[in-house]
Nucleic acid binder design. Structure first.
Lengths: 145, 145
DNA sequence: ACAATAAATGAGAATAAGTCTCATTTATTT
DNA sequence: AAATAAATGAGACTTATTCTCATTTATTGT
């Protein structure tokens, strides 16, 4: 555990410090998206707020952390160590839950083709994409009864 | 112009007031996504900041305005009067430009099929989706030279 | 292992987006 | 035109994020 957080840092030429290890470990506790608040609560006073934001910035810079905004405008953050972890998100507007979803290869391939068309049309270089789906979890999620 | 903004309001049982007309007209000046700052500058002191936010909330409630967050965390807002205006967004990380893009019917159909699968798998009711693409506009955009 | 140097941290101040309050104005209904 | 209800403006307030700077911690060369 602690090894692999150290490895992430050294592999990316980022100095190994306690706050960075603690934040990485907190992020690894769940592979699902987490709010800053979650993290802060989990870390308590072991990492200062300013340091937490700085470390998250560092992790984004070395490309192991993705950040996005949920429909209720909360910033959400998720470790993404491998390109093969590519996935999308499903948002429940009732309980705020965010679920990781994979889409089929067939779909991803067609999307790649569409993206190539868009690149040509707008003379863009596209390096990432994201599909977001919004709805309500009809009954059985842990938060909505 | 002014007629159609009034029509939008009356069609949705929202009382017709000057700030609402002014905000709608500012939104209609460009069919592209706009930041709150854009709007505020354009409106000057004709609409108070608190009123601007309230009116934008009203327009979201009657479903003629979509709001989202760009990768640099700016809130962006866009009129969407017809379901047939369905489209997606392309973000330039150099200049911040946001471009509306349509994807092919073939793609949208396959995405609908994927969404049905996701609905079943997670017992969700999905009512909206969004494809976001990120990259850089390689040369000719108005902001990047 | 030990200085010297550079980088990262903690604490809290500063900033900025968005919300809230409440007295006044404007729309709507009769 | 009066009465009622709703919307507005102005600015205070809240809260997420960034910034500053003195102190601590990591790294590098010897």
């Amino acid at each position: 555990m602690s090894e692999s957080s150290r490895k992430i840092l050294s592999d990316n030429n980022v100095s190994i410090t306690n706050p960075r290890i603690l934040v990485l470990e907190a992020l690894m506790e769940s592979q699902n998206p987490q709010t800053i608040d979650d993290l802060q609560n989990r870390l308590g006073d072991r990492v200062a707020k300013s340091t937490l934001y700085r470390v998250l910035g560092d992790l984004k810079k070395i490309n192991v952390l993705h950040e996005f905004t949920s429909p209720d405008n909360t910033t959400v953050v998720e470790l993404l160590l491998q390109d093969s972890d590519h996935h999308h998100h499903l948002f429940c507007s009732d309980c705020g839950e965010i679920i990781d979803v994979g889409l089929s290869n067939e779909f991803e391939q067609l999307l790649s083709a569409e993206i190539k068309k868009i690149e040509r049309k707008f003379n863009f270089q596209i390096n990432d994409h994201r599909v977001e789906m919004f709805g309500t979890c009809t009954d059985q999620c842990s938060n909505c009864k």
